Computed example of a mutant assay.
Amino acid sequence: MVYELLAATGVLALLTMVPGPDMAVVTRRAVAAGRGDGLRTVAGITTGLLVWGVLSVAGLAAVLAASATAYTVVKLAGAAYLLVLGVQALRAARRGGHDEAATPVRTPPPAGDPWRTGLVGNVLNPKIAVFYTSLLPTLAPHGLSPHTGMALLVLVHAALTVCWLGGYVLLLSRARAFFTRSSVRRGMERITGVVLIGFGLKVATAQA
C-alpha cells in the first residue's frame, strides 16, 4: 500500500506542477498585490480542490462528470470567469502605460477578494470533477476502502498544491522589486491576461 501511495503521490505531483489557470491567477495576484494576496489566492484554490474532493467522495461530482448538460453549464461559467480575469489583466496593463519604465509602480490590487478568486476559479472548473472521479479511483491504494483512498488522495493533492503554488508565491515575492517596475509589470499583466484568455477559450471548447 505504501508503494501505491508513493506512486500516486508522484503522479499527482507531476499534474500539480503543470502550468495552468491557477498558476496564471496566482502570478497576477502575487505580482500585483504581494505575498499575502498570493498566498490567500493559493488558499482559495486549495479550498476549491477540497470542495470537489468532498463532492467526489460523496459521489455528487460523478453526476456532473456524467451529465453533458451540467458539465457544459459549469464549463462555460468557468470559461467566462477566466476570460473576465484575462480582460481585467489586459486593462490593467493599458492603465499603466504612461509610467516610467524602470520605476517601481504602486497600483491598486486586482479586483476581488484573492481567496474568493482562487475558490471560484476551481469550483467552476469541471475538469477537476472529471479528474477526481476518473483518475483518483485508479490511483487509490488497494489496502483502503474506496472512500478512504479517495479522501486520502484529495488531501495529498491539496497539500501538494499548497507546497507548489505557495513556494511559487514566495519565490515571486523575493523578486517583487523587479516585477513592480512599470515596464515589467505591464508585460506581466499582458502575458497573464493573454494566458487567462487562452485558458478560458480552451476550457470553453474542451470536450467532456
Rank of each mutant, 00 (worst) to 15 (best):
residue 65 A to N: 09
residue 67 S to W: 00
residue 67 S to Y: 00
residue 70 A to S: 15
residue 71 Y to T: 11
residue 73 V to T: 10
residue 73 V to F: 11
residue 74 V to F: 04
residue 76 L to Q: 10
residue 77 A to H: 02
residue 79 A to F: 06
residue 80 A to W: 00
residue 87 V to N: 01
residue 87 V to G: 00
residue 89 A to G: 04
residue 90 L to Q: 07
residue 92 A to F: 07
residue 95 R to M: 13
residue 96 G to Y: 02
residue 96 G to V: 05
residue 97 G to K: 06
residue 99 D to K: 03
residue 101 A to Q: 11
residue 101 A to E: 15
residue 101 A to P: 08
residue 105 V to K: 11
residue 105 V to L: 12
residue 106 R to V: 11
residue 114 P to C: 02
residue 114 P to S: 00
residue 117 T to A: 08
residue 117 T to L: 11
residue 121 G to H: 06
residue 124 L to N: 08
residue 126 P to N: 02
residue 130 V to M: 05
residue 135 L to C: 03
residue 140 A to M: 04
residue 141 P to G: 04
residue 141 P to H: 08
residue 142 H to Q: 14
residue 142 H to M: 10
residue 143 G to K: 05
residue 146 P to I: 02
residue 146 P to V: 00
residue 147 H to N: 13
residue 147 H to M: 08
residue 148 T to L: 06
residue 151 A to C: 04
residue 152 L to M: 07
residue 152 L to P: 03
residue 152 L to T: 03
residue 165 L to K: 08
residue 169 V to C: 05
residue 169 V to P: 11
residue 169 V to Y: 09
residue 171 L to F: 09
residue 172 L to R: 00
residue 174 R to C: 10
residue 174 R to F: 04
residue 176 R to D: 13
residue 178 F to M: 12
residue 183 S to K: 11
residue 184 V to H: 08
residue 184 V to T: 14
residue 185 R to N: 06
residue 186 R to F: 04
residue 187 G to R: 10
residue 189 E to I: 05
residue 189 E to H: 09
residue 189 E to F: 14
residue 189 E to D: 15
residue 193 G to I: 14
residue 194 V to Y: 12
residue 198 G to C: 08
residue 201 L to E: 13
residue 201 L to A: 15
residue 201 L to I: 13
residue 202 K to L: 13
residue 203 V to F: 12
residue 204 A to H: 10
residue 205 T to R: 12
